[in-house]
């Protein structure tokens, strides 16, 4: 029986990385040479939200209490939260819909598996590609924030790795979830989790609005970690809870990666 040896085959590249995973990133670069507009368009979505919600609606809202309780303009309040949400959404879209399509329909991975690449290389490569895209969007968005004069704290530089951490956490868990999906219908479940999280994790208004019990629950959601982390960096009021946020997202990412490498083996190596 070969069952027990399979994890051994997977574990080393997951832990130490394999250069072959880079080939998958190269593939995606080729693909997007044709579809660059899709890449560019991903940058505009959070920008549109920032202009509409931050400025259009922000004019009606005025100031709100920010990290540490000081009153801050609504644009500054909502911009980092939109960045966190778009990091989450970008990672989830890539790791669920697109990944499922490649896994089940396009058979891209089946062809790749008849080369020396392993399942772990595929998982790592897809993940890496998602992070590269995420980094591009993040830098672009922060550039816009600076140009519009929202958030000028030196901590702002740290939002780039922090946003990548959000992409990593959600991307890995998203891929793990996708490996359990059987039909497109199952994706409703993902939406069922993502949309409420997007709307209620302190993205658009302070979590202090909620009663204590509810607020505590909200503060445990993964998106809240990202929102609060980015917001404190953008405003420049960074407390010890930032360490908790970082640890939370790291654990999430590695747990997801662990599950996905086990599951993909079973799905692809039938």
């Amino acid at each position: 029986m070969t069952g027990p040896t399979l994890p051994l085959r997977v574990a080393p590249p997951i832990m130490f990385g394999s250069r072959r995973a880079l080939r998958l990133i190269e593939r995606n670069l080729y693909v997007y040479r044709h579809g660059w507009i899709v890449i560019v368009s991903g940058f505009f979505e959070p920008l549109f939200y920032l202009l509409s919600i931050g400025f259009g609606l922000g004019a009606l809202v005025g100031n709100v209490p920010g990290p540490g309780g000081a009153s801050i303009p609504y644009q500054l309040f909502v911009a980092p939260a939109l960045l966190a949400s778009s990091s989450m959404n970008g990672a989830i879209t890539e790791a669920t819909f697109n990944f499922f399509f490649k896994l089940r329909y396009q058979k891209t991975f089946d062809a790749i598996l008849s080369t020396p690449l392993s399942v772990a290389d595929i998982a790592l490569g897809e993940m890496g590609w998602g992070l590269i895209r995420g980094a591009l969007y993040t830098v672009g968005f922060i550039g816009v924030m600076v140009v519009l004069g929202i958030g000028v704290s030196p901590w702002l530089l740290l939002t780039v790795p922090a946003a990548l951490l959000i992409s990593f956490g959600f991307g890995a868990v998203g891929m793990a979830a996708t490996s359990f999906m059987r039909t497109w219908q199952d994706f409703d479940l993902i939406q069922l989790i993502i949309l409420p999280m997007f709307l209620f994790s302190g993205t658009f208004y302070p979590v202090e609005t909620y009663p204590d019990g509810l607020r505590f629950i909200v503060q445990l959601t993964p998106l809240y970690q990202g929102v609060d982390l980015l917001r404190s960096l953008a405003v420049g009021v960074v407390g010890p809870e930032a360490i908790f946020h970082v640890a939370y997202l790291l654990v999430m990412g590695f747990a997801g990666l662990f599950v996905v490498s086990r599951r993909l083996d079973r799905l692809l190596l039938k």
Binding site: R23, V31, Q106, T108, A111, P116
Partner: peptide, 20 residues
Amino acid sequence: SLDTELTVRENLVLYGRYFG
């Protein structure tokens, strides 16, 4: 199981890249 997101030639080139 051709990669429909790539051209004919790219399918060959990239596949070769997977072999290092």
